[in-house]
Design a protein around this nucleic acid. Structure first.
Lengths: 222, 222
DNA sequence: AGAGCACCCTACCAATCGGTAGACGGATTG
DNA sequence: CAATCCGTCTACCGATTGGTAGGGTGCTCT
């Protein structure tokens, strides 16, 4: 009886959060019952409701844990980068890795955008408004310096890049178009998707080096 | 009593489809009950189940109607365009308008991608595979002709553009970042989003005209 | 006139939903 | 040892779920 429960109860709450994250991401809030979550970790529904007072409380906990994880990983990257080109690569890569590392995150966020738009709006506002502003300033500086394309719309550009990132939520489905036969494994496809994504974002952002029309094989420093 | 039912029963099935489309898009499959759909059109749940044998049947009907609408609008556009630049603008615009015309479409598709990935995979395959191939061929031709950027990955590019399109599903939420104060009305924001989206897709696709580095104010013919 | 059909209804079903009440066992603490 | 607390349990709640059975009602076709 002692070898059945690996750790006594240290991780029960975390186990629940993990299982709930997966299930909410896969089947949505309405499509996931407390029963199912409880089954996933091998306890009874009533025991689940001891740890979280209600279903929405559990859901909110899942969501806020995700956001805190995001909030703790981003600022470092913003500070770490040096040149503007660096900063670009780093930030986009950060977002991409964050979603690719656990695709449930993207799914969860997209789902919440669809299920509770007004709620997500506030949430996005408080969690991203400031650094959206920062990035926009950098972009406008770049436009004055002649490094960033002058016809780029900074805010709209960022939102579209976010949309591209969210695309990874459904990448398991859409990436199928890369090679319908389905021979290559998913990681390979994601690599192609990521590379092209980065190329698109980069090309649509920077002006080519003067007098060499190709935005291709660029070296990056200030 | 005769003025209550505007048209006798001509449109009952269509009314149901319309209401179901809206509700499924807003709250998802699991989050929408037959009761609610029936209420939305003012009949009883049992009467709904006369028109559609089950919930999934209704859902499938909603989905297949959406797809047929898409299938009937696309080929025309593909044929109508003449030059390759034309074709590009037309196709992307077609997708954009299709989703913007009724944002429930985007929401519904994205939801289904999340809810039933494997199902959507088959569906996407049968409905889009052929013209993805066509577009890819055109892109590769363009690469040989020196009009399309040589480092572009055709398939991955298309998938990413699709992701961008799907972004309109959540645009009500994300477009908030354009101007957090929320003064401008949504149509204005969507216009900005669309313009920047087109600019990104275009810039990341075409090589600039030789010796003029700006992809800006281009005239379009062969 | 009357048989059939299309359409909507009321009434009901078992199953599941989120959530509560309270008992039990095993530690911790006085 | 007794008291207490924590975590899980069984048992139950009313509401709602998707779905069925069958009874009208009115229209059409013979």
């Amino acid at each position: 009886m002692s070898e059945l429960d690996l750790q006594p109860e240290i991780a029960m709450r975390e186990q629940l959060l993990k299982a709930a994250t997966r299930l909410f991401a896969e089947r949505g809030y309405g499509g996931t019952s407390l029963q199912r979550i409880a089954d996933a970790v091998g306890i009874r529904k009533a025991s689940l409701l001891y740890h979280f007072p209600s279903k929405v409380a559990l859901y909110d906990a899942v969501l806020s844990e995700l956001l805190s994880r995001w909030n703790e990983s981003l600022p470092k990257l913003l500070l770490a980068a040096q040149t503007s080109r660096d900063r670009f690569e780093w930030v986009i890569h950060a977002g991409m890795d964050f979603f690719r590392e656990d695709r449930n995150r993207a799914r969860l966020l997209v789902r919440d955008m669809l299920d509770r738009p007004e709620h997500m709006r506030k949430l996005i506002l408080t969690h991203t408004q400031e650094w959206v502003k920062i990035i926009c300033d950098v972009l406008r500086q770049g436009q004055e310096n002649g490094r960033v394309r002058p016809d780029l719309d900074p805010e709209a550009y960022i939102v579209n890049v976010v949309h591209l990132l969210c695309g990874f939520a459904a990448a398991d489905t859409t990436a199928f178009l890369l090679e319908p036969s389905g021979e290559t494994e998913n990681p390979v496809k994601f690599e192609r998707m990521s590379n092209e994504f980065m190329r698109m974002a980069r090309t649509a952002l920077f002006l080519p080096r003067v007098e060499t029309p190709l935005a291709f094989g660029e070296t990056n420093e200030t």
